[in-house]
């Protein structure tokens, strides 16, 4: 019972933050994917690096639960390609569809419905597809700790690696402050009632 309330509370906090950074805005996501806006990728990478340090701290004091998923070279890679095409097309990922649907974006509601169909179809094909695609190249629940032999070293490697990515993205992609002409352009002549803010 506690879990239900914890889930609801965590979801509200998570949904609130991703709305405020603009991850529920498919326009901003498209511009991120087009390398026109570096804020969302840098936000994601920094959040992961900080979380890795946080999870390391939790494990040091023996709090919480971890469960790394296995890596299947074929299935994880193929799934990522399918996912990436959908993400690039819609600008939504499974979590943001819920938050964006809650915000009132109609296209996200359709993405959510399509997602239910996709999940139902995969569940239906689970018994057929998992033995063909997932199991043969499943290399198990490997982590960077297995590769580097020490949890603290592995966290440091991840943090430095992500830090370099954040720095590189910041150098190569413009950030939101510098590019605003495109945001201004296309919508200005075609505004309709649905484009108003919700305030």
């Amino acid at each position: 019972m506690t879990n239900i309330w914890l889930g609801l509370f965590s979801g509200i906090a998570f949904g609130f933050v991703i709305q405020r950074i603009g991850a529920t805005d498919a326009h901003r996501m498209a511009r991120s994917h087009l390398m026109l806006d570096s804020d969302i990728p840098r936000f994601m990478l920094l959040a992961v690096a900080l979380s890795a340090v946080g999870v390391f701290g939790l494990q040091a004091v023996g709090v919480g639960r971890t469960l790394p998923l296995p890596t299947s070279i074929v299935a994880t890679g193929l799934a990522a390609v399918i996912f990436g095409v959908g993400w690039g097309l819609t600008g939504y990922c499974p979590g943001t569809t819920w938050a964006a649907a809650g915000e009132g974006r109609m296209d996200a509601i359709f993405a959510l419905l399509g997602g239910l169909v996709g999940a139902a179809l995969f569940a239906h094909l689970h018994e057929t597809l998992i033995p063909i695609l997932y199991d043969p190249t499943n290399v198990g629940q490997i982590t960077l700790t297995d590769l580097f032999g020490n949890h603290a070293v592995a966290v440091a490697v991840l943090a430095v690696g992500f830090g370099l990515c954040i720095w590189g993205i910041g150098k190569l992609w413009p950030s939101a402050e510098r590019v605003d002409a495109f945001e201004r352009g296309p919508d200005s002549e075609k505004s309709s009632s649905n484009t108003g803010n919700s305030g």
Binding site: G7, G11, I12, F14, G102, G196
Partner: peptide, 26 residues
């Protein structure tokens, strides 16, 4: 309840922001 919470969080965040545009189409 987590994904349900995400929808609630998106709703609350959308209603309390006067500046982030909510659009049906990007």
């Amino acid at each position: 309840t987590f994904v349900l919470g995400m929808a609630v969080g998106g709703f609350v965040a959308g209603r309390t922001s006067k500046r982030i545009p909510v659009r049906d189409m990007p």
